[in-house]
C-alpha cells in the first residue's frame, strides 16, 4: 500500500492510519471555500482512486481477525466524509447564492399564446349550467327551419300581426331562418311525452341591425311541461335562474305582455344591475332591465303537437344571450361580438 505523505511513521497500525485519514480529510474540508476544491477533495478521498476507496480495497490484505473491525470503521468514515462533503457544498452554495446577482427574474417568461372562449359561448355555458343543475336537458335543432315550426305550430298564423314582432329572413315561402329557438321545443314535443324540462340554446336570425341588434344573435329558451305546472312555478324557476346568473339580491318584476305561443305571458325585468334601480343610461332611467320573455304555453301550441290540454300544462321562457352578456361584461355595442377583434376576444 502506498501511503500518503501525511501518514507519518507514528501511524503504524491500520486503525491509526484510517483515523488519521479522517482527521486530515475533515480539516481539509473545513478550509475549502470553492466548489472546485470540494470536487478535488471528493476525488482525492472518495473517488475511484481516492484514499478511502483504496483503503477499503486493501482491507482484504489485513489479517483475518482485523478485517471486520477495519471494514466497519472504513465504511463509517466513508459515510461521515460524504455527509461532511454535502454539507460543505451546501454551505458554499448558500454563501455564493447570497453573493450572486442571480438572474433577472423580472424578464418575461417564455410566452405562450393564450386562447379564449367567445363571450357568447361563455354566457351560454353559464346559463346552460344553471338550468342543467335544475334538472333541465339541453335540446338542439336546425337553424334553417320550416315556417311551420317557426310560426304556425307556435300559434303565429300567416298574415297575423304577431309576425311583425319578429322580422324574418326568408329562404322561400315555406322556409325561414329561425327567428327564435322555440321551433326546437316544438320538435322536442313531437318526439317526447311530458313530463320534461328542457332548454334550447342556439343561433337565431332577424333582419335588424343597429347598436342593439345584429341580424344573427343567440337565445336560450326553456320549456317545462307536466301535470299541474303553474304560473307560480314559472316565477319560481326564473327567480332561481336570475339569482344564480346575477346575484340573489337581484329583484325581479313580472309584468303582463303578449307572445302568441304563451298565455298569460310575462316580461321579466330585473332591477338594473348597473344602478341598482336608481335609473341610468343602461336602463333608460327606468331602474329596470328587460331580460326574459315568458308565459304559460298556449293551449293552441299543445293542440298542435297533440298533447292533452286538460291534463298537461307548462311554461316557456326565452332570453337573448347577447343582452345578458352586455350586462355581465359592460359591453355597449352588440356588433362588437361579431367583429371578432382579437383584442376583444382575448379579454374572455
Amino acid at each position: 500500500m502506498i501511503l500518503p505523505a501525511f501518514l507519518t511513521a507514528e501511524h503504524t497500525t491500520v486503525e491509526q492510519q484510517i483515523e488519521q485519514i479522517l482527521k486530515q480529510a475533515l480539516s481539509e474540508l473545513q478550509s475549502a471555500s470553492q466548489t472546485s476544491q470540494i470536487q478535488a477533495f471528493s476525488v482525492q478521498y472518495l473517488g475511484r482512486k481516492g484514499l478511502v476507496t483504496q483503503y477499503l480495497r486493501n482491507i482484504s490484505q489485513l489479517p483475518a481477525e482485523q478485517r471486520p473491525m477495519a471494514g466497519k470503521r472504513a465504511n463509517e468514515i466513508k459515510y461521515i466524509l460524504e455527509e461532511a462533503l454535502q454539507k460543505a457544498l451546501q454551505e458554499i452554495e448558500t454563501r455564493q447564492a447570497a453573493e450572486d446577482v442571480g438572474i433577472d427574474v423580472s424578464l418575461p417568461g417564455r410566452a405562450i399564446f393564450r386562447g379564449s372562449s367567445h363571450p357568447i359561448t361563455r354566457i351560454t355555458r353559464q346559463i346552460s349550467e344553471i338550468f342543467t343543475r335544475m334538472g333541465f336537458a339541453v335540446a338542439e335543432g336546425p337553424e334553417v327551419e320550416l315556417d311551420h315550426y317557426n310560426f304556425e305550430a307556435l300559434n303565429i298564423p300567416k298574415n297575423h300581426p304577431a309576425r311583425d314582432m319578429q322580422d324574418t329572413f326568408y329562404v322561400s315561402e315555406a322556409i325561414v331562418l329561425r327567428t327564435h329557438t322555440s321551433p326546437i321545443q316544438v320538435r322536442y314535443m313531437e318526439k317526447h311525452a311530458p313530463p320534461f324540462k328542457i332548454i334550447a340554446p342556439g343561433k337565431v336570425y332577424r333582419c335588424d341591425s343597429d347598436i342593439t341588434h345584429t341580424p344573427m344573435f343567440h337565445q336560450v329558451e326553456g320549456l317545462v311541461v307536466g301535470e299541474s305546472i303553474s304560473f307560480g312555478d314559472l316565477k319560481g324557476i326564473l327567480t332561481a335562474f336570475v339569482h344564480q346568473m346575477f346575484d340573489d339580491q337581484t329583484s325581479l318584476r313580472f309584468r303582463p305582455s303578449f307572445f302568441p305561443f304563451t298565455e298569460p305571458s310575462a316580461e321579466v325585468d330585473i332591477l338594473c344591475v348597473m344602478c341598482r334601480g336608481k335609473g341610468c343610461r343602461v336602463c333608460k332611467q327606468t331602474g329596470w332591465l328587460e331580460v326574459l320573455g315568458s308565459g304559460m304555453v298556449h293551449p293552441a301550441v299543445f293542440e298542435n303537437v297533440g298533447y292533452d290540454t286538460s291534463r298537461y300544462s307548462g311554461f316557456a321562457f326565452g332570453m337573448g344571450v347577447e343582452r345578458i352578456a352586455m350586462l355581465k361584461f359592460g359591453i355597449d355595442d352588440i356588433r362588437k361580438y361579431y367583429e371578432n377583434d382579437i383584442r376583444f376576444l382575448k379579454q374572455f
Binding site: G135, F136, A137, H192, G226, S228, I229, S230, G232, D233
Partner: peptide, 15 residues
C-alpha cells in the same frame, strides 16, 4: 301570484 317550484321527476334530464 305566489312563487313555487315545479314538481317534476328528474329522470328525463340527460345531456
Amino acid at each position: 301570484i305566489p312563487t313555487t317550484f315545479p314538481v317534476i321527476s328528474e329522470g328525463s334530464a340527460q345531456s
